[in-house]
Design a protein around this nucleic acid. Structure first.
Length: 746
DNA sequence: AGCGCATCCATTTTT
DNA sequence: TGGATGCGCT
């Protein structure tokens, strides 16, 4: 353990009692955790299955396993409980399922499954979807669950109708022998907090509990780890409040900040030496995070050289931003930096388009993480629905999805009838189907179709045990006629879909060989669980490609070169419809901190003077976070200053800037509230906004209008006449100028 | 059932 | 801008 610094050693050797480790970005956290587990195994003689380590992603869990394999050996690692909260809970719930009234083969419903169930529930309850959209109810329900409240809880924060919906939704899930993500945790917590035998057993199951990324833990997760470590108090939590970025999903930073309050005897260790980044990058990050309203004091430092300066680059718009970034990517590639060591970050997915276009034009291979996920494609979901239905015939959402896919003449009317029947007798659809056929509850034609479907499903169920999961998938594609249909269609899209389906079968086969390697049995249930609990990063390929992703998905990753794009007010920090509480702004700041600290050697930050996003072009100020980066670690390039049309794209003014006088002190343009705009055809002084009276502007709701006057100020307003909508006063940022700049180069 | 067209909407997403 | 969704038409 000699390769550990002092605080790391402390973290590794403090084994008993509560321990809180603040692990700064790039401070060798994984290393410390891994060594700590190895140390436990070596010195405490703990059976591996009594050690629980919860990580943030499957990827992190995999990495930890991998590293432990080298330290502790194969068999030992196999018995350790290492995984995400959800996967660990899924596994536990397979053992304690009966305590909460679930069948052993419960399936896990993802977002879209949940939405389907909730839509159905609301319809059945006669709740107006306008007044209470399924998405909203689901988010409310999720909040209830994340805060530990099952339906009927006395402290429910729901309105009467939402409460009703919650109850019905939960019933529907139980009837389908299904759980949602929150249920996995909440059910296990329920077991763990139940007095008596099963709860006792669960509470004593683990001797040592470790939690990674503790700053992103929600209340239920916190209570869960507390319960699981209750007997021994051997709870080690590792995290960094500066990297808490999932508040909107229920993460509660206060849990890490006040850990010592709940565990007064906790030992606290701070890992503050950064091994990842150059000095300039560390200091840039520090400059940003130190301005946070609230944080636990930590001083990230590095022994590394300052390295190259952080480049802060002004660009005209998202296209120039993209070409600029791609230009550097090319240069770095030429210098021998592998493409997979480069990443481009943005705040919102919508920003990826311009970047993708530029990369494609330059013929640079790239991968976009997140966005539309593979497992969300229709055909993939269809196949999975079949598989899940075989696994758990009660899963109504799956049955509804595929009962008529491919079309087999079971129309809405028939399905409605089935649903009624199911509701009347409180049966899952599959059983309602039996009833309908047996008791002749449907017209003869429909009955025939239903019988055919029944036969299909029962044959699949019959054969499933004798088939490997991948074979079963193939069988489904064959016997349902799904494959033939796509083959017959013979167009590009169908080909793509076939390809996707083959990929699914291939993925199952991969899983099977994985299992084989580990000496485990590959089961359908195992695979299904793995994919529902998988994330975008898990699918990240190591192929030499530039990675594009949101800052959120970048957490936990590192790259030699990072491009942080779209550093403008409104974009980053993002400002949506809701207001911005200080705590939300802090979270944006932390997000910026996370982004910066991903870079090892090279960091380019770009901000555009104007940006088209969601169909409207807006003029934007540089992000306030840029102003927090110390001047001596950064090099400012480019300008948003107005310039005349000839010179503007000539290059001199573009590249000449920033090398001369100190950018920061002489140019207050980075101060919040200053609006810098570039427009070629506008006399400098009458046009801060790029909008003048007489201009034609477009507003999303009101359409085209003619500007009557401009009201300057902190939030400039445009007064414009919009045909039938009359004269309106609108925030300038919500209109698009339709007048094209003279000689504009696009 | 499948389509074309209008309309509405718009962070972030470990699981 | 584009994507998701819903509706009406064939």
């Amino acid at each position: 353990m000699t390769e550990l610094n002092e605080p790391q050693q402390l973290a590794v050797t403090h084994l008993d009692g509560p321990l809180l480790v603040f692990a700064g970005a790039g401070s060798g956290k994984t290393r410390a955790i891994t060594y700590r587990v190895a140390n436990l195994l070596a010195t405490r003689n703990v059976p591996p299955f009594r050690i629980l380590a919860v990580t943030f992603t499957n990827k992190a869990a995999g990495e930890m396993r991998e590293r432990l394999r080298g330290l502790a050996g194969d068999e030992v690692v196999r018995d350790l409980w290492v995984g995400t909260f959800h996967s660990v809970c899924a596994r536990l719930l397979r053992r304690y399922h009966d305590v909460v009234g679930l069948g052993r083969d419960f399936v896990i419903y993802d977002d879209s499954d949940q939405k389907a169930v909730m839509t159905r529930v609301l319809r059945d309850l006669g709740i107006d979807e306008e007044a209470l959209p399924p998405k909203l109810v689901l988010s409310l329900v999720s909040r209830e669950k994340r805060e530990g409240r099952m339906p009927g809880h006395s402290k429910s924060e729901l309105t009467a109708s939402a409460r009703q919906a919650y109850e019905a939704y939960q019933k529907a899930l139980l009837r389908a022998n299904a759980v949602d993500f929150d249920d996995l945790l909440l059910y296990v917590l329920t077991v763990a907090e139940t007095p008596g035998v099963p709860g006792d057993e669960l509470r004593g199951r683990f001797s040592y509990v470790m939690v990674d990324e503790f700053q992103d833990t929600n209340l239920v997760q916190y209570r869960l780890v507390r319960a699981l470590s209750f007997k021994t108090q051997n709870l080690c939590v590792v995290g960094d409040d500066d990297q808490s970025i999932y508040r909107w999903r229920g993460a509660d930073v206060r849990l890490i900040r006040s850990f010592q309050h709940d565990f007064p005897n906790a030992t606290v260790v701070k890992l503050e030496q950064n091994y990842r980044s150059t000095g300039n990058i560390v200091n840039a990050a520090l400059g940003v995070i130190e301005k946070a309203d609230t944080r636990v004091e930590k001083k990230l430092w590095t022994a590394q050289d300052p390295g190259e300066k952080v480049v802060i680059r002004a660009v005209r718009d998202e296209r120039e931003e993209a070409t600029h970034v791609v230009g550097i990517v090319k240069r770095l590639v030429a210098r021998g930096v592998s493409a997979d060591q480069m990443a481009i970050f943005y705040r919102v997915h919508a920003q990826s388009r311009a970047l993708e276009e530029a990369l494609r034009a330059a013929d640079i291979p790239y991968q976009v993480l997140g966005g539309v996920r593979f497992f969300e494609r229709a055909e993939v979901k269809d196949l999975i629905a079949y598989l899940r239905l075989v696994q758990n015939p009660k899963s109504d959402a799956d049955l509804e999805r595929i009962v008529n896919v491919p079309a087999r003449g079971i129309g809405d009317k028939t399905v409605d009838r089935l649903r009624d029947l199911a509701a009347e007798r409180a049966l899952p659809l599959i059983e309602a189907l039996d009833v309908a056929v047996r008791e002749e509850q449907v017209p003869t034609a429909a009955k025939k179709k239903l019988e055919a479907f029944q036969k299909l499903m029962s044959e699949l169920a019959r054969d499933a045990p004798t088939l490997r999961p991948s074979e079963l998938a193939e069988e489904i594609l064959e016997r349902t006629g799904y494959k033939q249909l796509l083959v017959a269609a013979d167009d590009a899209e169908s080909d793509a879909r076939l390809g996707n389906l083959e990929e699914v079968v291939g993925a199952i086969a991969d899983y099977e060989s994985d299992c084989e390697e580990q000496g485990e049995v590959a089961t359908l249930g195992g695979w299904l669980e793995r994919i529902t609990l998988a994330a975008a990063v898990d699918a990240m390929k190591d192929a030499p490609k530039v990675s594009l992703m949101t800052v959120h998905t970048a957490k936990g990753l590192e790259f030699r070169a990072v491009f942080l794009t779209g550093m403008e007010e409104e974009i980053f920090p993002y400002r949506g419809v809701s207001g911005r509480e200080p705590e939300e702004l802090d979270e944006e700041r932390r997000l910026a901190y996370v982004a910066i600290t991903r870079a090892r050697e090279h960091l380019t930050i770009t901000y555009a003077g104007q940006r088209s996003l969601f169909g409207m072009t807006r003029y934007l100020e540089p992000s306030r976070f840029l102003g927090d980066i110390p001047h001596d670690v950064a090099k400012h390039e480019g300008t948003l200053e107005r310039y005349d049309s000839q010179r503007s794209y000539g290059g001199a003014s573009r590249y000449g800037y920033g090398t001369g006088s100190s950018y920061g002190s002489s140019r207050p343009s980075l101060a919040p509230g200053t609006r810098v705009v570039e427009r070629e055809d506008v006399p400098p002084d009458d046009d801060e906004l790029g909008i003048r009276p007489g201009d034609r502007v477009r507003h999303q709701r009101y359409g085209a209008g003619i500007v009557e006057r401009i009201e300057q100020g902190a939030a400039p307003m445009v007064v414009a006449r919009f045909g039938v909508h009359g004269t309106r006063r609108i925030l300038a940022s919500y209109v698009t100028v339709e007048r094209r700049a003279r000689g504009e180069v696009w």
